[in-house]
Nucleic acid binder design. Structure first.
Length: 444
RNA sequence: GCAGCAGUAGCUCAGUUGGUUAGAGCACUAGUUUGUGGAACUAGGGGUCGGUGGUUCGAAUCCACCCUGCUGUACCA
C-alpha cells in the first residue's frame, strides 16, 4: 500500500486494475456492436448473469478454508461465501441447471461481462477484464464446435482484421486421452502435469516441454519447476504423436470436414492446443493474433491468444443429473481491443464538441440559442463550461481537440453574425447563423 | 508462491570516494497591456529522495528488515 502524505487516500489503483479512456472504450463499443450483430445472425440468445455467485457454485472446490481466495475475490455476507465470477462458463452451467426445464434444448447463448481473477497480472493481463462468451449447451453435434470457429472468424473480420492477421488453432483432448490410455498413464496428477506442460510448447519449445514431462525444468531466473516424471520412452511417443501434421482423432476429422463445407480455411491443426482447463473433453481451440503488439514502451510483447474454448461435456452435469454436453468459446475483449488500437489502419472517430466561447455572461441567452440551433441540427456543441478569459477558453478547446470555436461577442451579436474559428487551420469566418451548421459540417 | 532486477517531483530521468536550503526536460499554474489556442519568453507551485531502524559530526548516496513495482516462472478451477 502506497502511503500518501498527510494521510490522504491513495490515488493509486489496486494491482491489476486500470482506468480505461475514451479511445479504448469507443473501440470496445465498436467491437461489441459487431459481436451483437453477428450473434443475432447466428441465432444466439443474449444473457446476463450477476457478477457475484455463491462461491460453491463457481468453483470446483468448495471453500474448505476460512476464506476461499484461491484466485477469486470473495467475501462473506450474513451466512454465505460469495465470489466475483472468474469466467462466464461456470455461471452458464449454473444458469442452465437452474432453468433446465424452461430453456430450449439445445441452448445457445452469448454473454458479455466483466470477470475478475485474484492472481498476479502479467503484461496485457489484468485482474478485471471483459469477456465475450458464446456456447452451445445440450448438443454433441460437432457442427456446433465448427460453427463457433467460423463465427469468431467472422467477428474478427467484421472488426477489421484480415485473414493474415489471425489464425484459429484447433486440437482435441481425445488425442491426449488416447495417448494416456496407450501409455498407461492413469495418475490424474501426472496427466494434469503432462497437459500443462504440453500447453507450453509455443512458449518453451519442445526442449523445455520435454524437461517438464521428465524430471523438471529450471527457468532462466533459476526457479525450478517439478515435472511429470514420465519415462523417456513415453515422452518420445508423445512427441512423435503430437508432431503429426494432420489429426487422427475422429472428432477433428469431422470438424475439418465441416470447415470445408463452410469454405473456412483460416485455421491450423495444432496438437499443442491443450488449454489449461481440466474440464475440456473434446475439441479445443485458440484464437491467435499474428501481428506484432507492443507495450507502452514500444517493445514488442509476447501477446499470445486473445481467446479460446472447446468442448466440455461434463461441466453442466456438476449441478445436477442433466445430460448437457456443451461447447463454447470465449474472447478476452480488452486484449482484442488493445491489439486493434495498435493497427495503424484502424481509426475510430471521436466526436468532440464545437465550443461556444463566453464573452459576457449577460449574453448567455444568445449562446444558448446558438447552442440549441446547433444541437437540433445534430452538431456536438457546448458553451464553454466556466468563466475564464478568452485565452483560457481557447486553450481548453484546443486541449479537448475541439474542431472549432464560435466567437459571439458584442460586435458579432450586434450584427447577428457569429465568427467561426477552425481550430485545425486557424482560419476564421464571420457568417450568418443559418450558415453555421453547414460551415461546421464542412470542418467536421 | 519462487527467482532476478528496481523504487528520486504528475511523467521520463540526472544526482557514488556520503557533506551547504535535492536537479533537468516534459506537464501544470500565472503573466508577456486588457476578444483568440497549438510556438516563444518570464515567473511560480510541486518531492521529509518507497518505509522503518541502524552506522556516521553528517545519508537520496552505506547496512538490515519491510513494502511496492517490473520481468521470468508456477498456479489460473
Amino acid at each position: 500500500m502506497k502511503k500518501e502524505k498527510n494521510n490522504k487516500p491513495s490515488k493509486e489503483l489496486p494491482l491489476g486494475f486500470v482506468d480505461r479512456q475514451e479511445k479504448e472504450l469507443l473501440i470496445r463499443d465498436f467491437v461489441i456492436s459487431n459481436i451483437k450483430e453477428i450473434m443475432i445472425k447466428y441465432g444466439f440468445q443474449y444473457l446476463e448473469t450477476p457478477s457475484f455467485e455463491y462461491t460453491e457454485s463457481i468453483g470446483k472446490f468448495l471453500p474448505d478454508a476460512e476464506r476461499p481466495d484461491q484466485g477469486v475475490f470473495s467475501f462473506k455476507d450474513e451466512n454465505n461465501w460469495l465470489s466475483l465470477r472468474y469466467d462466464l462458463t461456470a455461471p452458464l452451467a449454473r444458469y442452465v441447471a437452474k432453468n433446465y426445464l424452461e430453456i430450449p434444448k439445445p441452448f445457445k447463448r452469448y454473454q458479455l461481462g466483466t470477470v475478475w481473477r485474484n492472481e498476479k497480472p502479467g503484461p496485457g493481463r489484468f485482474r478485471e477484464f471483459l469477456q465475450f462468451d458464446a456456447d452451445f449447451v445440450g448438443t454433441k453435434s460437432l457442427q456446433a464446435d465448427a460453427e463457433l470457429c467460423v463465427m469468431i472468424s467472422e467477428i474478427l473480420e467484421k472488426c477489421g482484421l484480415k485473414k493474415t492477421d489471425y489464425i484459429i488453432k484447433i486440437s482435441s483432448r481425445k488425442i491426449t486421452e488416447e495417448l494416456f490410455k496407450k501409455l498407461n498413464i492413469n495418475d490424474n496428477n501426472q496427466r494434469l502435469t503432462t497437459l500443462r506442460a504440453l500447453d507450453k510448447i509455443d512458449r518453451l519449445g519442445w526442449d523445455g516441454v520435454k524437461e517438464l514431462l521428465g524430471a523438471g525444468r529450471k527457468d532462466k531466473s533459476g526457479d525450478f519447476t517439478k515435472g511429470a516424471n514420465l519415462k523417456s520412452q513415453d515422452i518420445q511417443t508423445i512427441e512423435e504423436t503430437l508432431k503429426k501434421k494432420s489429426p487422427e482423432s475422429e472428432d477433428l476429422i469431422e470438424i475439418l470436414k465441416i470447415f470445408k463445407d463452410y469454405n473456412f480455411s483460416n485455421f491450423e491443426f495444432d496438437p499443442s492446443i491443450i488449454r489449461g482447463l481440466e474440464y475440456y473433453t473434446g475439441a479445443t481451440f485458440e484464437v491467435n493474433l499474428k501481428f506484432d503488439v507492443t507495450n507502452n514502451k514500444g517493445q514488442v510483447i509476447q501477446f499470445g491468444s486473445i481467446g479460446g474454448g472447446g468442448r466440455y461435456d461434463n461441466l453442466v452435469n456438476n449441478f445436477g443429473n442433466y445430460d448437457a454436453p456443451a461447447t463454447g468459446i470465449s474472447i478476452g475483449l480488452d486484449r482484442l481491443v488493445y491489439a486493434l488500437m495498435q493497427k495503424k489502419e484502424f481509426k475510430i472517430k471521436q466526436s468532440k464538441p464545437v465550443v461556444i466561447c463566453v464573452f459576457d455572461k449577460k449574453a448567455m441567452k444568445e449562446y444558448i440559442s446558438l447552442q440549441m440551433i446547433l444541437r437540433k441540427a445534430g452538431v456536438s456543441v457546448e458553451i464553454y463550461p466556466g468563466e475564464s478569459k478568452l485565452k483560457k477558453q481557447m486553450e481548453y478547446a484546443n486541449k479537448i481537440k475541439s474542431p472549432a470555436v464560435i466567437l459571439y461577442g458584442e460586435n458579432e451579436i450586434k450584427s447577428g453574425k457569429p465568427t467561426l474559428r477552425n481550430l485545425g487551420s486557424g482560419k476564421e469566418k464571420t457568417i450568418e447563423v443559418k450558415e453555421l451548421v453547414n460551415e461546421i459540417k464542412k470542418i467536421i
